Simulated assay, not measured.
Amino acid sequence: MTATAPRTTTRRSTSDAGPGDAVGTGHAACHHGEILQGVFLDERGRPCQALVTLPMNGPGSTAHFTLRPGTPPDDVRVTPAGRTKARAAAVLALRECAARLSAAPCGGVLTLTGDIPVGLGMGSSTSDVIATVRAVADAWGVRLAPRTIAGLAVRAEGASDPLMLAPGPPLLFAQREGRTLEALGPALPPAVVLGCALGGGAPVDTLALPAPAYDARDLDTYEHLRRMLRRAVSDGDSALLGRVGTASARLGQRRLTHGEFPVLTRIADRAGAVGVQIAHSGNVAGVLFDPRPPGLNARLRRCARDLEREGITPTRVFTTHPSPNSPISPKSHHPTPSEDSSRGRAHLGSHRPAGPDTSRRRTRLPAV
C-alpha cells in the first residue's frame, strides 16, 4: 500500500516535538461485551473461535505518537507505564509503516488517554492498540487498511475485538485470527441496553480463567445461535436478539461463573426485557429491551431499581439502533453505534480508570 494523506491529524510540530519529529493521533471506541461468542465453522469448514460484539460509542482510547528519528524502532516510551500491548503494537506499526515507505524505522513516544474501565470486558486493551496503530500511521502519513490493523492488533495482544471495523455492520469476527467470518447484515435489531457491572465492578484477570474448551455438541449449539442471530438481524427481531444474547451468556457461565447471573435474568424477565448480554472476558453486562412497545421508560426505571436492590450497579443506557423516532431522547443517552466517534471530540480528559464507580449510593443514569 502506498502512502496517502493521514487518516486523522496531519504532521505537525508541538512543544514536545523536536526538530524533524512528527506527531500523529489515533482514536478507537470500545464495546459493551458480546452478544455472541463461541466456536463456529469458517468458510473451509474449520472450527474457529469467534464473537459478535455489542458496539457502543462514548468511552474510548486516544493515542498521540511522536516519532524520534534516529532512535531504535523498539525504543518506544509509553505513558501511562504498563501498557505493554500498546507498546508492542507501536513497535509493530513503526516497522510496518517504515517498510511501506522504504524508510528506516525509528522509535518514539506514545501517550494514551481514555475513559474505558479496565478489565470489565469492554475492549480496553484493543482500543489502546488500535488507537496506537492509527497514531503511528498518522505520524508517518500512511493509511493502513482495517485488515492490516487487525493483523497488527492480533500480533500485539494475541486476540483482538473488531473495533478497527467500527462503526459498521455486525460481524462474526475470529478474534484470534483478526478476520471476519461473516457479515451478519446491515445493523443489529433495535434494542435499548441498560448496562450494569457484575462482581462489584471488579476487573477480571482473563489470563487466570480456564481456556475455552469446545466439543462437537458446542459447535452445533453455537452454529444454531449463529443462524438465530442472522435471522434476528435480517428481520430486525429484537426478541430473537435477546434470546441469542441470553443463551450465549448462559453458555459463558461455564467459564466465568457470575454469581449474579440468575438474579440478572430474573430481573430482566420481570422488567419485560427481551434478554441479557454479558462480556465473555469481564464483568460488564446489559439488559436488552425492545424500544417499540409502550412503557419503555417505566421498564428501564424499574429494572434499574431492582438491580440496585440486588447490589448490581447500573451504569449507562444506550441503544443499538438510533433513529429520529427513538423513544430515548437525544439529550438523555450516550452516543450510539451509528455515530462515528472518530469524527467527534477525542477523549482527552484523563487516563483510563481502573473500573466504574461501584459505590452503593444510587447510580445516576441518563434521564429516560
Score class of each variant (00 low, 15 high):
48 C>W: 00
72 P>Y: 01
83 R>C: 12
36 L>W: 03
7 R>P: 09
8 T>M: 10
32 H>S: 10
6 P>G: 03
16 D>S: 08
63 A>V: 07
50 A>L: 02
70 G>W: 05
52 V>F: 05
58 G>Y: 08
78 V>N: 00
51 L>A: 03
58 G>T: 11
41 L>N: 04
28 A>V: 11
11 R>Y: 08
53 T>R: 00
81 A>D: 14
7 R>W: 12
17 A>S: 15
21 D>Q: 11
41 L>A: 02
35 I>H: 09
12 R>S: 10
64 H>G: 05
75 D>I: 04
16 D>W: 12
66 T>C: 10
47 P>Y: 09
59 P>N: 06
34 E>S: 08
61 S>W: 02
74 D>E: 11
35 I>C: 08
54 L>D: 04
26 G>L: 05
29 A>C: 13
7 R>D: 15
36 L>K: 06
12 R>Q: 12
4 T>D: 09
34 E>K: 01
24 G>P: 09
81 A>S: 13
80 P>R: 05
30 C>N: 12
76 V>T: 07
77 R>Y: 10
62 T>K: 06
69 P>Q: 00
23 V>N: 01
65 F>C: 02
22 A>H: 11
28 A>N: 08
39 V>H: 00
47 P>T: 01
21 D>C: 09
30 C>G: 13
68 R>S: 11
82 G>K: 12
73 P>I: 12
78 V>S: 04
58 G>H: 07
34 E>D: 10
61 S>C: 10
48 C>A: 04
52 V>P: 06
30 C>A: 14
84 T>G: 14
67 L>F: 01
35 I>G: 00
44 R>Y: 07
52 V>N: 09
12 R>A: 10
65 F>K: 05
82 G>L: 11
77 R>L: 11
50 A>S: 12
83 R>K: 15
41 L>M: 11
75 D>K: 04
35 I>S: 01
67 L>R: 08
80 P>F: 03
39 V>S: 01
58 G>D: 06
52 V>M: 06
20 G>I: 01
38 G>Q: 03
52 V>K: 00
30 C>R: 06
6 P>S: 09
45 G>E: 09
62 T>R: 05
10 T>P: 15
42 D>K: 02
32 H>M: 13
53 T>E: 09
11 R>G: 15
4 T>I: 09
5 A>T: 15
85 K>F: 06
27 H>R: 12
44 R>A: 15
73 P>N: 03
13 S>K: 11
26 G>S: 07
79 T>V: 10
37 Q>K: 00
66 T>E: 11
77 R>G: 10
42 D>R: 07
43 E>N: 12
78 V>P: 04
34 E>F: 02
76 V>N: 03
72 P>M: 03
22 A>P: 06
60 G>F: 07
16 D>G: 04
77 R>W: 07
49 Q>N: 13
31 H>Q: 01
35 I>M: 05
48 C>V: 15
80 P>Y: 10
5 A>S: 12
61 S>Y: 07
25 T>H: 10
17 A>R: 00
11 R>I: 13
22 A>S: 14
41 L>H: 08
82 G>P: 11
71 T>W: 06
54 L>A: 14
18 G>A: 13
54 L>M: 14
32 H>I: 05
12 R>I: 13
55 P>K: 03
29 A>V: 14
72 P>I: 03
32 H>K: 03
